[in-house]
Amino acid sequence: MTTNMKKLPKDSFERITIDSSHAEKISKPSLSFWQDAWLRIRKNKAAIVSMFILVFIVFMAFVGPYMVEHDPEDVKVAHASLPPKIPGLEKLGIFDGEGKLGSKTVNLYELKKVEVNYWFGTDSLGRDLFSRLWKGTQISLLIAFVAAVIDVVIGVIYGGISGYYGGRVDDIMQRIVEVLIGIPTLVIVILMIMIMKPGIWSIIIALSITGWIGMSRIVRGQVLKYKNQEFVLAAKTLGASDTRIIVKHLLPNIMAIIVINMMFTIPTAIFFEAFLSFIGMGLQAPKASLGTLINDGYKFLEYQPHILFFPAVIISLLMIAFNLIGDGLRDALDPKMKD
């Protein structure tokens, strides 16, 4: 305890008046919820890299099929089973058009006198794999995205009504959910595909038929949590209508959790589509999706591994990217993680 008594200038002890509003001043700039989330997620390198990968894949899914002159569904038997060939890369010993014929490695393009280049090669029917890959990615993404949106819409409406109105309505709605949630996704998806012809829409419907349940439970939980909080009660006291309370007060608060969940629903849908195609319940040729491409590639794995390689890489990248972005968003938006 140093009692320092060194001489201080006399005027040091002049009384000053502190504007107490000054003490209340908040020195940090105030950030909106989403700005704050963005600042957080920006520090998550994995999520940022994933976003770039995702943007690239989505871009290619729409532009890729038009980058080459080959149509993804054109069958050209003369050009069947060609290995990848990209002009300019030949010197590096990759994408040089060489492939196995029996046990010898030969340049199949020269052998078959093919003048054009197939960047990622062709399949057993001579369809261009580059355009097929991106067309397939496009369809897989479309299925996953639409299925996820349907899940969100039904889930939010169902969960919202159940949670907001509560009481009898909630009771009945939750009993239904409890029965439905017992049905395994795998089982319901297979049964639904059996009724409908395999196709884009039947897969979407099959995926959505029980997919919304998870979302509805989350939304209900959140609505239950928020609806009795003071700011909602205050809005009610001020005479806000139910619609206004739901749209202006509840939805913004549960938006984050909806977005996070959507980030996990999409890869699940991508997986299920590919899975169905792999077991033969997916899209029918000549339509392509990542699943059918992988299924095709698997049949020729031993001699033409490249057919499988590209779609397998794209589907893995997509799944990883969505999962990492989902993780990143969860960490960024979860208020528990603040400080």
Partner: peptide, 17 residues
Amino acid sequence: ILGISIPSFVFAVLLQY
């Protein structure tokens, strides 16, 4: 992350190959 993301059939084919 890889285990959750990479579909089992892709992984199975990779192992087999």
